[in-house]
Design a binder for these strands. Sequence first.
DNA 1: AAGCAAGCGAATTGCGGTTT
DNA 2: AAACCGCAATTCGCTTGCTT
Length: 278
Amino acid sequence: MASGPWTDEENDLIVADYFAMLADDIAGRRYSKAEHRRALLPLLNDRSEGSVEFKHQNISAVLKGLGEDWIPGYKPAFNFQMTLVDAVARWLDLHPDWLGRLPGTRLATGMREAAQIWIAPPPTLSNQPPPQELDQMLHVARKFDVAGRDERNRALGRAGEERVLAHEHATLRAAGREDLARKVRWVSEEEGDGAGYDIASYAPDGRPRLIEVKTTNGWERTPFHITRNELAVADERRAEWCLFRMWNFSREPRAFQLYPPLDAHVSLTPTSFQASFN
DNA sequence: AAGCAAGCGAATTGCGGTTT
DNA sequence: AAACCGCAATTCGCTTGCTT
């Protein structure tokens, strides 16, 4: 039995099998996990059923770090090795359309949502996941440049802003401020980026509220990019500005808000540098 | 250099619940 | 009743670092 670490070949096989099941799951097709496992087993180097199951949970963990859906029932299990991450990366390279696929295949059931979004406290203030787990997830996020991917995904960003717009309208109406709700403006849509916030809204008491929306399909601690300009505006108008972080977007949007100073909540790492001649 | 302890990652077994 | 599924506590064994 169980002879040493999994080889790259084995990892490739099980990752491909995993994605086959995940595709079935997302499309709502029936499939049998046990059947997949039986088909896979003889192709591997004499692994036990248990270890195959466990490896599936490890793949779920990689996918969670990536900010992607995983197969329900394979609860993410950490302590996976980086060779497994490489195998997932290889598979995604060979199937570039997987990440580009439109979010929302499974949305049909969840569309009866209220316009308001559930806002929870930011992760810095709630209970933390074990540090070991967090490190591994961030490592994966970096390896795949999850933050960059979200940033470049204009459709995701726009959908997120639209969602927040609806949320602000609903919140103000619920507070009996129809007058303010009518004055909410989608700044980035009307004037383009550059203002340092996306939506100009109001608190129920009438104070202005400048909202920068950051959207991801990933989990709540997925890293994101923030521009120098956004930071500057956050600082200049710190009483009004807020960052609206929306996560788990394609399934069921959840959110938290961050208020300046941002570095009290997150650590800011420069990721791009200006090169000029002198 | 060898022996020993500690730590850590990998994997397995077994159990409780669910579906057919 | 039997098969199937999901899950987690726990064990195993290897590596690494420390001591003598």
